[in-house]
């Protein structure tokens, strides 16, 4: 564990807490893409297949459980909670995310560390996470102004993988055989997808204006 990875995990946890706060405090999920939340649930379920077989540390196991339970709880809330589901922007959240699942799985069948179920699902989860934010970014562009909590949620979600990139650079220089090319390249793509969001988020912060993504 290094400071970059810990900062990344805490930022990731922060994004989830902000989203839970938004949904719980405002009893609304307007501006939130259910499809992105579903993709994240798939990412964590596919990535943490080793939850019950491999034990690295209490931290590692606890965080995996937190990510799986929170992503499933958010999907359940947006689909079935009486008050929340009414605020879901169904007609705006139309990104065909099944293609992202299919594409990521095909890519994982081609590029993986070992041709085993665990490794193919792990690579699949890495590729899927890189593109999982797309439905959410499309929804933000369509839904005019973005409320503060939603903007902060996406900001922390984008920033966490940026910290992981610093972690991979650090591990590359400090560990002999560190070659996590799948995660590193995918992480770069993932963070790059947030570039325009970060730009408009920074502008809104600088001008103290409401966050607005151009359509």
């Amino acid at each position: 564990m290094n400071i970059f990875r810990l900062a990344g995990d805490m930022t990731h946890l922060m994004s989830i807490l902000v989203l839970l706060l938004k949904i719980y405090a405002t009893k609304s999920c307007s501006g939130i893409s259910l499809k992105t939340q579903e993709l994240y649930a798939v990412v964590f379920l596919a990535r943490y297949l080793d939850l019950l077989t491999d034990f690295f540390s209490l931290y590692n196991t606890v965080m995996k459980v937190v990510f799986i339970v929170s992503s499933l709880a958010i999907v359940w809330c947006m689909r079935y909670h009486r008050a929340v589901r009414r605020t879901y922007d169904r007609e705006l959240d139309t990104f065909r995310h099944y293609f992202l699942i299919l594409g990521s799985f095909v890519l994982a069948l081609i590029f993986h560390e070992k041709f085993t179920v665990r490794e193919i699902f792990w690579a699949f989860s890495i590729y899927l996470e890189a593109v999982a934010i797309l439905p959410q970014l499309v929804l933000l562009q369509r839904s005019g102004n973005v409320d503060n909590l939603t903007g902060q949620y996406v900001f922390f979600l984008g920033a966490y993988r940026g910290f992981y990139i610093l972690n991979w650079i650090y591990r590359y220089f400090t560990e002999a055989h560190f070659g996590r090319w799948i995660a590193s390249i995918s992480g770069l793509v993932q963070t790059a997808l947030y570039a325009d969001f970060f730009y408009y988020y920074f502008l809104s912060w600088k001008n103290n204006a409401k966050l607005k993504l151009p359509a």
Partner: peptide
């Protein structure tokens, strides 16, 4: 697998 190839990151 807790060797080098194991995925110790979240």
């Amino acid at each position: 697998a807790t060797g080098p190839e194991a995925h110790d990151e979240l």
